[in-house]
Measured scan of single mutants.
Amino acid sequence: TEIRININGVTIHVRDASEELKKLIEHLLRLGADEKEIREVLHRWEK
Rank of each mutant, 00 (worst) to 15 (best):
residue 1 T to I: 14
residue 2 E to G: 09
residue 2 E to I: 08
residue 2 E to T: 11
residue 2 E to D: 11
residue 4 R to Q: 14
residue 4 R to M: 11
residue 4 R to A: 11
residue 5 I to R: 00
residue 5 I to H: 01
residue 5 I to L: 11
residue 6 N to H: 13
residue 6 N to S: 10
residue 6 N to E: 14
residue 6 N to W: 07
residue 7 I to N: 02
residue 7 I to F: 12
residue 7 I to Y: 04
residue 7 I to K: 03
residue 7 I to P: 01
residue 7 I to T: 03
residue 8 N to C: 04
residue 8 N to A: 08
residue 8 N to P: 02
residue 9 G to W: 02
residue 9 G to T: 05
residue 9 G to V: 02
residue 10 V to D: 05
residue 10 V to G: 06
residue 10 V to A: 09
residue 10 V to T: 12
residue 11 T to A: 08
residue 11 T to P: 04
residue 11 T to E: 10
residue 11 T to H: 13
residue 11 T to G: 04
residue 12 I to R: 00
residue 12 I to A: 02
residue 12 I to P: 00
residue 12 I to M: 04
residue 12 I to Y: 04
residue 12 I to T: 02
residue 12 I to C: 01
residue 14 V to D: 01
residue 14 V to N: 01
residue 14 V to Q: 03
residue 14 V to R: 00
residue 15 R to C: 03
residue 15 R to H: 14
residue 15 R to L: 14
residue 15 R to I: 09
residue 16 D to S: 08
residue 16 D to E: 14
residue 16 D to I: 06
residue 17 A to S: 05
residue 17 A to L: 06
residue 17 A to M: 05
residue 17 A to N: 05
residue 17 A to V: 08
residue 17 A to F: 06
residue 18 S to Y: 03
residue 18 S to V: 06
residue 18 S to Q: 06
residue 18 S to A: 07
residue 19 E to N: 09
residue 20 E to K: 09
residue 20 E to N: 09
residue 20 E to G: 07
residue 20 E to P: 06
residue 21 L to E: 01
residue 21 L to S: 01
residue 21 L to V: 04
residue 22 K to Y: 13
residue 22 K to L: 14
residue 22 K to I: 14
residue 22 K to P: 02
residue 22 K to N: 06
residue 22 K to F: 15
residue 23 K to H: 14
residue 24 L to P: 00
residue 25 I to D: 00
residue 25 I to M: 06
residue 25 I to P: 00
residue 25 I to S: 00
residue 25 I to W: 01
residue 25 I to H: 00
residue 26 E to K: 13
residue 26 E to S: 10
residue 27 H to P: 01
residue 27 H to D: 12
residue 27 H to M: 09
residue 28 L to P: 00
residue 28 L to M: 14
residue 29 L to D: 02
residue 29 L to E: 04
residue 29 L to F: 09
residue 30 R to E: 11
residue 31 L to R: 15
residue 31 L to K: 12
residue 31 L to P: 01
residue 32 G to I: 01
residue 32 G to W: 02
residue 33 A to G: 03
residue 34 D to E: 08
residue 34 D to Q: 09
residue 35 E to I: 13
residue 35 E to D: 09
residue 35 E to T: 05
residue 35 E to Y: 13
residue 36 K to A: 15
residue 36 K to R: 11
residue 36 K to Q: 13
residue 36 K to H: 11
residue 36 K to F: 10
residue 37 E to N: 06
residue 37 E to S: 07
residue 37 E to F: 14
residue 38 I to G: 00
residue 38 I to L: 08
residue 38 I to N: 00
residue 38 I to W: 04
residue 38 I to A: 01
residue 38 I to K: 00
residue 39 R to Y: 04
residue 39 R to A: 05
residue 39 R to C: 08
residue 40 E to N: 07
residue 40 E to S: 05
residue 40 E to R: 05
residue 41 V to T: 13
residue 42 L to D: 00
residue 43 H to T: 09
residue 43 H to L: 15
residue 44 R to E: 15
residue 44 R to P: 01
residue 44 R to S: 10
residue 45 W to Y: 08
residue 45 W to C: 04
residue 46 E to I: 14
residue 46 E to V: 06
residue 46 E to R: 03
residue 46 E to G: 14
residue 47 K to Y: 15
residue 47 K to W: 15
residue 47 K to R: 10
residue 47 K to F: 15
residue 47 K to L: 15
